[in-house]
Amino acid sequence: MNFETQDRIISWVADPSKPRFVPPLGAVDAHCHVFGPMAQFPFSAKAKYLPGDAGPDMLFALRDRLGFTRNVIVQASCHGTDNAATLHAIAKSNGKARGVAVVEPSVTDAELERLHEGGIRGVRFNFLKRLVDDAPKDKFLEIARRIQQLGWHVVVYFEADILMELRPFLDAIPTLIVVDHMGRPNVAQGPDGDEMRAFRSLLDSRDDIWFKASCPDRLDAKGPPWDDFATAVAPLIADYPDRALWGTDWPHPNMQDATPDDGALVDMIPSIAPTLSLQRKLLVTNPMRLYWAKEAV
């Protein structure tokens, strides 16, 4: 990719609305990213997109505007396996952020320990072909075995059409698993559609598979207020309330043609978690158990 000639992509709303929904005290945005700043943290030569700078100051200002307390920063694919930007953001958070890294199969134990000290609590395996060129399952499993001793979990990102193909791989992962955006099911099919039923089958196969009930902007083609997403996802949270997480996905990689309003994303939380109990589990109890275990109550 020629970074000198490609236009920088802006995929977020500069002035998101202030949500009407007030998250419970201690709420965690459990899926977000940082981009650069590029001058300080260059993007990977293998990056499939070149975003504008969206650093920690912007992220934490958004966190405060939306009424959240903490963030889980997931390594963005544009930074490859150089986790410096993510670690930098965590360090600037004053203990209010944790992270999920992307690492090379050759990563040393010393580097894993360094990442842990820097606030990393998981590793991400990405199977979206438009974002990564190679996803070696055998090497991923070796990484999963190595991070067990750190108490980390595995985050997996895939699309629904390869779920059955991935089942043997997922079954072999020895750690807790978190599935990004529920494996991107077709929410237009409703809660009983083939893809949602296949995802439920995965959840039923192990009690240590969690999911992020996130990204209506990616999954609901009808757009705001994302009613198809709410209809399909609310029963999932109701049935698996102790394994659900939520996140903004800010700064919404590659969503420049359908940039969501983060305030509107927050305002739809009651549509998928209608009770105070479900909201607290989704936004506080579950992410705290996973990322701030010593502080969880």
Rank of each mutant, 00 (worst) to 15 (best):
N254A: 15
D242A: 12
L236E: 00
G223Q: 11
D109E: 08
N254D: 13
D133W: 14
E111R: 12
I120N: 00
R114W: 08
G67R: 08
A238T: 02
A244C: 08
V103D: 02
M268F: 12
F229P: 01
R197E: 03
R206P: 00
A76L: 11
E111F: 08
A54I: 11
R121M: 10
A27V: 14
G36R: 03
R200F: 00
Y240K: 04
H88M: 09
D204C: 09
D133F: 13
D262W: 12
D267I: 14
G122K: 02
V100S: 02
D161W: 14
V284L: 01
N83H: 06
L236C: 02
A258N: 15
A27Y: 02
T108W: 10
L131P: 07
I143W: 05
P225M: 08
K222S: 13
W210M: 12
K212G: 04
K46R: 14
S271K: 15
D192M: 12
A230T: 07
P51R: 08
L290K: 01
Q6V: 15
Y240D: 01
L50S: 09
A160R: 13
D134Q: 14
L245Y: 04
D57A: 13
R200T: 03
G193F: 00
A47R: 12
T275V: 09
G95L: 13
E4L: 13
N286W: 04
D171H: 07
I10T: 10
P287N: 06
V13P: 03
H79C: 10
G118A: 04
G122I: 09
H252E: 07
W246G: 05
L265P: 00
L265I: 13
I269L: 10
A101Q: 01
P191N: 01
R146V: 01
D204R: 12
A221W: 09
A61H: 03
D220Q: 01
V233D: 00
A84T: 08
P37N: 02
F211I: 00
A144M: 05
D109L: 12
R124W: 00
V22A: 11
P23K: 05
A296Y: 02
S106Y: 09
T81F: 14
P136Y: 06
R218N: 06
L245K: 02
V154I: 15
R200S: 01
I237C: 03
R145H: 12
P19Y: 13
D133M: 12
E165C: 09
F169H: 04
A264T: 13
D208P: 02
A258V: 15
K137G: 03
R121T: 10
V154Q: 03
L236W: 01
D53S: 10
W292M: 02
A54K: 10
D227K: 15
A188C: 11
A135R: 07
H88G: 05
F125A: 00
L128K: 11
I143M: 06
S17L: 11
H79W: 08
M38H: 14
D257G: 12
A160S: 13
T86G: 04
P174G: 05
A54D: 07
S77D: 09
